[in-house]
Amino acid sequence: MSGFQYGVSLYSYTDDIGTVMGLDEALEHVADTGATGIEILSESHIPAYPRPDTAWIDHWFARLERLKLVPTNMACWVDTSITLNHNRTEEEGAAQLAQDLRLAHLLGFRFIRPKFGVIDEELTPHPIWRGAVERVLDLADELDITIIPEIHAPTPIRHPVTEAYVDFIQKTGTRHFGLLIDTGIFQDRPLPYWPGETPEIRKAALSFLDGIKVPVEHLAEVIDYVPFIQAKFHHIDEKLHDHHIPWDRIVPMLKKLNYNGYLSSEYEGVRDPWVAIEQVRRQHCLIRRLERETELSHA
C-alpha cells in the first residue's frame, strides 16, 4: 500500500506573508512539517506576475533545492467577465491558460488550478471553459502539466459540474485534465459564524458553511480522475481532533482507493498571526497518524 505525498498551500499562510513573515520564512515552515510539496497562488505569491524577473526565479529554485521542496500546483484565474460589457471569449480564455501553463512550467509546477468565473451559486463555470481548455491541451501535453479545476463546496461530487469535467476527460482522452478535490466538500459540522454574519445571511447565501456533507464513499466514482487533493480544514485542537472535517473517514477511504498523490494542506480558519503554522503542523500529525493506523489495520 503506497503512501500519501504531503504538501502545503501557501494560501494557508497568506495573511502572514508580507506582514509577520516573508515567502522564504513561509517555505521554511512548510519544510519543517516534513512536507515535500509547495502550492502557491500565482498572482499573490509571484512578484511581477506573470513575468517574474530572472533573479527571483533563480532564488525560487535555490530555496526549494535547499529545503528539498518541489512545486506542485499553481493556482490561477480565468476571469470571464473583464468588464460589465465584455465577457472573455474561448480564445481569450485559452490565451490566459496558455500564459499560466508556460509560467507554471518555468517555475517547475506539475499542475495548474484555473478558477473560471462562475454563473451561479453552485459554482457552475462559465461555458467558455470547455473550448478554452480544449485549445491548450496540446500545450499542456508538451509541457507535461495537468489542468485541474477544483470541486469545491457548495458543489458536491454528484453534480453536473463534476459530470461535465469527467465527460470532457472521457471524450478527449486527455491525461492532462483532471479534478482537484477540496476536502471542504466532506465538512459535516457547521463553521463558526463570521463577524457580522447572521443566521439569515447564512441561510440565504452561505449555507454551505454548515457543511454539504458529501459522503466520502462518493470518491470512488471519480478517484481515477483525481491527481491532486487540497486538504481543506478550519480548526484542529491540541488533541488532534478536527472540529469540521471527518479525516477518520477520509483517510481510510483514500487508502482503500489506493490514492498516492498529494494532500496539500489548505488552512482556512482563524487568521490571527502565526496560528496557521501550528494548525498546519497539527493537520499533518493527524493525517500521518491516521494513515499509519489504516496501514496497520490492513497489515
Rank of each mutant, 00 (worst) to 15 (best):
H105K: 12
H298C: 14
L67T: 05
T183D: 00
A31P: 01
P273L: 08
I112Q: 05
N85H: 10
V78Y: 07
V133G: 00
L180T: 04
A231Y: 10
P114N: 02
D182F: 12
L206P: 01
I82F: 13
I46F: 05
R88D: 10
A299T: 12
T162K: 07
R271F: 08
N260K: 04
L123M: 04
K68F: 00
I250W: 14
E121C: 08
I212L: 15
D138R: 12
Y193C: 09
I46D: 03
S2H: 14
E92R: 03
L84R: 15
G22R: 06
G37L: 15
L263G: 06
L103H: 04
L137G: 05
E295N: 08
K171G: 00
A35Y: 13
V251K: 12
I250M: 12
F233W: 12
V133Q: 01
F208D: 06
A55M: 10
R288T: 05
V70P: 03
Y225S: 02
D16E: 07
D120W: 08
A75R: 09
C76P: 02
I82K: 15
I201Q: 14
A75Q: 11
P156L: 11
E291T: 04
I145D: 08
R202G: 07
H241Y: 13
A153Q: 08
T155N: 06
D120E: 09
V136D: 03
H244E: 01
A153D: 01
A204K: 07
I185Q: 07
P50E: 13
V226F: 06
I57R: 06
S265M: 10
Q279M: 14
L191I: 06
E291N: 12
E268F: 13
